[in-house]
């Protein structure tokens, strides 16, 4: 048990987090494109990609919300040891981690303030699989259109309508990530 908690972090944090961030940056800058990350082995039920994302972006200064199964004790212990992010309720979190259903309703999350739209939550959404089989995405970072299998469409329409406010989303599945910043327009199906 203890061994699980202590293992699975970055073994060479400066370099591994640098490589992971580049993938996350590319994914956020090119919404809908699927990238691969590596370097973390978090406890179940977290995906490698969710673990890498937490290790790369979160620390003691970022309130984190764990939803549903992602709030398992083994996950909390691992986060406490490797990341140190304080756990908070949804409305106060900078980052939130969970499956889409567990994160509902997503309008609980911070969308920033009109003068500080950056003070908004980033949702890390665990998926079973990521694929380009989904609605068309357009907007900044996308030349013509990309496609991504989204858990739903309506919530992202509502989020886009808040622009420049809104939350930003990182989807994770296995070792894959893809992003949907608030600036992306999702095709109406």
């Amino acid at each position: 048990m203890i061994a699980d908690m202590l293992s699975g972090g970055f073994t060479d944090a400066p370099v591994q987090s640098a490589r992971a961030f580049r993938e996350i940056l590319e994914a956020m800058a090119r919404p809908g494109t699927i990238r691969r990350v590596e370097g973390a082995l978090p406890p179940a039920p977290l995906s490698v990609a969710a673990g890498v994302t937490l290790l790369t972006l979160c620390d003691a200064t970022t309130p984190l919300h764990l939803a549903g199964r992602c709030g398992a004790q083994a996950v909390k212990d691992w986060i406490a040891f490797h990341i140190g992010a304080p756990l908070f309720d949804a409305p106060d979190a900078d980052f939130a981690l969970g499956h889409w259903a567990d994160l509902q309703p997503v309008n609980r999350f911070r969308i920033g303030q009109p003068d500080y739209p950056d003070r908004s939550a980033t949702l890390i959404v665990e998926r079973d699989v990521l694929s380009d089989d989904g609605p068309a995405l357009t907007g900044p970072g996308i030349q013509l259109r990309t496609h991504l299998n989204l858990p739903e469409v309506q919530a992202f329409h509502a989020n886009r309508a808040l622009f420049p406010l809104g939350f930003d989303t990182i989807f994770t599945a296995g070792n894959q990530i893809a992003c949907l910043p608030r600036s992306t327009r999702v095709e109406v199906i």
């Binding site: 961030f21 972006l57 950056d118 600036s183």
Partner: peptide, 27 residues
């Protein structure tokens, strides 16, 4: 020095800011 000079906590803080910048272009 740490890789690329800055400590990891500082880099994380900058990386978070970059991602928010990407999400709200021009802000």
């Amino acid at each position: 020095y740490n890789f690329a000079y800055l400590d990891e906590q500082t880099k994380r803080m900058i990386r978070r800011a970059i991602l928010k910048g990407i999400a709200v272009p021009g802000y």
